[in-house]
Design a protein around this nucleic acid. Structure first.
Length: 243
DNA sequence: GCGACAG
DNA sequence: ATCTTGTCGC
C-alpha cells in the first residue's frame, strides 16, 4: 500500500529530541483536516510491541465496515530513539513505515494507537505519518496527552469534545459503558466527524476498537516468536530508510 | 518549583 | 511499552 517512490522523505529520522521538535513544527503547516471524499472500504490498524530493543510492528487490513480481516503483516526492527512523551513518532515511525511497505492491499486510511492532532504541536503519530505517507489517518489513544474535556456520559457511544485551550483537538470517547474513555483525533486528510464516526463504528463490545485490539494481539503474538529466537532474531531489511 | 506526560 | 497473580464481573 506504500510505494517507494511515493514516500515523501520530508525529513530524516536520524535526529535527536530537539531536531525532532523542529521537524514537528515544520510539518505542522501541512496538516489537512478536510473531509475525505469517496467510500472507505478498507482500513489498516497498526500497533507496535517491544522485546528489549527490538520493535515488532503489526499491521492488519480490514474491510470496512464489516471488519473482515484481509491481510496481516509484521516486521522486526531495532529501535534507537527513546520514548519521550510528544515524540513517539520518532521511536515507532520508522518500523511502522517498513511494515506498511510490505502490505499489498491499498487501505483507505490508517488507524493508529496514539494521538492525531491531540498533541502539544498537533503532531501525534497519526498526523505525522499521515502527512509523511500522504494518506488519511486517525489517532485513537488509550490515554490523553494534551487537552481537557468534561461532561462525558457513562453510556457506550458517548463522547465529549477535547480542547487544548480554545482549540478543538479531538474527542474523549466512551467506547464501552462505565469504562474509561479513549481519545480520538483526526490525523490527516480526514475531518473530526469522520474520525469519530469511524472509530465508533469499529467498536465491537470492547474498550479498544476491534481493528486496533486485534492489531495489538497480533503484534504481541509476533513478539513472542522474537523472544524465542533471542539473539538470532535479525531485523527485517529496511525498504525505505536512508541517511 | 509543581504538575503532566501517547507507547 | 514492559515487569507480574490473582481476582471480580459479564
Amino acid at each position: 500500500m506504500i510505494e517507494q517512490r511515493n514516500i515523501s522523505r520530508l525529513h530524516s529520522w536520524q535526529v535527536d529530541a530537539s531536531g525532532a521538535i523542529l521537524i514537528q513544527l515544520k510539518l505542522r503547516k501541512k496538516i489537512q483536516l478536510k473531509r475525505k471524499e469517496g467510500k472507505i472500504e478498507k482500513i489498516a490498524a497498526i500497533d507496535v510491541a517491544y522485546e528489549k530493543e527490538k520493535a515488532v510492528a503489526g499491521v492488519l487490513v480490514f474491510s470496512y465496515p464489516q471488519l473482515n480481516l484481509i491481510e496481516k503483516v509484521s516486521t522486526v526492527s531495532s529501535v534507537d530513539f527513546p520514548y519521550i512523551p510528544g515524540l513517539l513518532t520518532f521511536r515507532e515511525g520508522p518500523c511502522i513505515i517498513d511494515a506498511l511497505c510490505r502490505v499489498k492491499e491499498k487501505a483507505d486510511l490508517l488507524l493508529f494507537d496514539g494521538q492525531g492532532i491531540a498533541h502539544p504541536r498537533r503532531m501525534g503519530i497519526a498526523t505525522h505519518l499521515g502527512i509523511y505517507l500522504n494518506i488519511s489517518s486517525i489517532g485513537c489513544a488509550k490515554s490523553k496527552l494534551t487537552g481537557d474535556y468534561n461532561n462525558l456520559a457513562d453510556e457506550a457511544g458517548s463522547f465529549a469534545p477535547l480542547y487544548d485551550g480554545n482549540e478543538l483537538v479531538g474527542f474523549a470517547v466512551r467506547t464501552k459503558k462505565d469504562t474509561r474513555p479513549v481519545f480520538v483525533s483526526p490525523g490527516n486528510l480526514i475531518d473530526f466527524d469522520q474520525a469519530l464516526k469511524i472509530v465508533l463504528t469499529c467498536c465491537r463490545g470492547h474498550r479498544i476498537p476491534e481493528p486496533l485490539r486485534l492489531a495489538h494481539i497480533f503484534a504481541n503474538s509476533e513478539k513472542q516468536r522474537v523472544r524465542e529466537n533471542g539473539k538470532n532474531q535479525k531485523d527485517c531489511f529496511s525498504l525505505f530508510r536512508w541517511t
